[in-house]
């Protein structure tokens, strides 16, 4: 099992690479070394690695730049850092870039082994999210409530949009099966239901995450720099607008003016409005929701 795992150690001090090799190869991992950021990129272009363990302070291409490159070009590779300067600032920067863990320098073999083992475990745990993606099943109680709601609107003219809004509240999104149920219940052609769903941005046909991040793209927020905030979120969660994170924790949406322009730039997570968001602050805010369960 361990010999399947390929790790690249990046450090400008050969002694660090050597000692990592010695400790980790004894555990059965495959270890390669690189003496700097540039060398690391070249090595990674040759073959895939499961993990990269890198120093932060290196001449020329430094650790942060390397991590950025990995996140962009080799997103499947997990990143660990070794640092002799574990100041809050640099660690935070690195964490914001999405590293798994860090090893303070100097380190003992036990610490290094521990951190690597935990990283492997973490990576395996995130995998089953893929499997979860499959066919969506709805509990019968949810469907019953949906039908009850639909029939309460049955003979009211112009009820399609309110019904869709309520349905989205109940189910979370509007997949074809839900649309068909509404079409039958209200006696409206399925094509028309779909036409309305696809027209209004409020409706979504994709499942949403436990937490919904809405970023305001209104003029005031634009003028105050919401774009950089959005970029930061995309980079960190590895999703685009309208997408959902692999673990289904977050979905990211862009909205037109929330009408809270006095607080620009504005981001809403679930029902909380966050004002004057900056690229620096944004991931801190989002991280707070990571530990919280799904919204009520």
């Amino acid at each position: 099992m361990a010999d399947d795992i390929k790790i690249l150690v990046v450090d400008d001090e050969p002694v660090v690479i050597k000692s990592c090799k010695r400790i980790l190869e004894a555990e059965g991992y495959n270890i390669d070394g690189a003496s700097g950021g540039r060398e690391a990129i070249i090595a990674m272009e040759q073959k895939p690695y499961d993990f990269v363990i890198t120093d932060l302070k290196m001449p020329e291409v430094d650790g942060i730049t390397l991590i950025k490159w990995i996140k962009k070009s080799r997103p499947d590779t997990g990143v660990l850092i070794i640092t002799g300067y574990p100041s809050q600032e640099t660690i935070k920067d690195a964490l914001e870039l999405g590293i798994i863990d860090y090893v303070p320098k100097p380190f003992t073999p036990v610490v290094l082994m521990d951190v690597v083992a935990r990283a492997i475990e973490w990576k395996q745990r995130t995998l089953p999210a893929e499997a979860k993606k499959k066919e969506e099943e709805f509990p019968p109680s949810m469907m019953a409530e949906l039908d009850r709601m639909i029939s309460s609107y049955k003979d009211k003219p112009g009820s399609l949009i309110p019904v869709l809004q309520r349905a989205q509240e109940i189910v979370g999104y509007l997949p074809p099966i839900v649309q068909k149920r509404i079409s039958r219940g209200l006696n409206i052609p399925a094509a028309e239901v779909h036409g309305v769903v696809s027209f209004y941005s409020f409706f979504t046909m994709k499942p949403r995450g436990d937490h919904i991040i809405k970023v305001c793209l209104g003029t005031a927020c634009y003028v105050k720099g919401i774009e950089e905030v959005l970029e930061k979120i995309k980079e960190n969660l590895h999703i685009g607008v309208g997408e959902i994170t692999e673990d289904r924790k977050f979905s990211l949406e862009a909205v037109r003016c929330l009408g809270a322009c006095g607080l620009a730039p504005v981001m809403v997570v679930d029902h909380d409005t966050h004002s004057a968001v900056t690229p620096k602050k944004v991931m801190q805010i989002i991280d707070e929701y990571k530990t919280v369960g799904a919204k009520a």
Partner: peptide, 10 residues
């Protein structure tokens, strides 16, 4: 109120 940047109606 759709104009981004306007919130008097809200």
């Amino acid at each position: 109120e759709g104009d981004p940047g306007a919130f008097m109606d809200r």
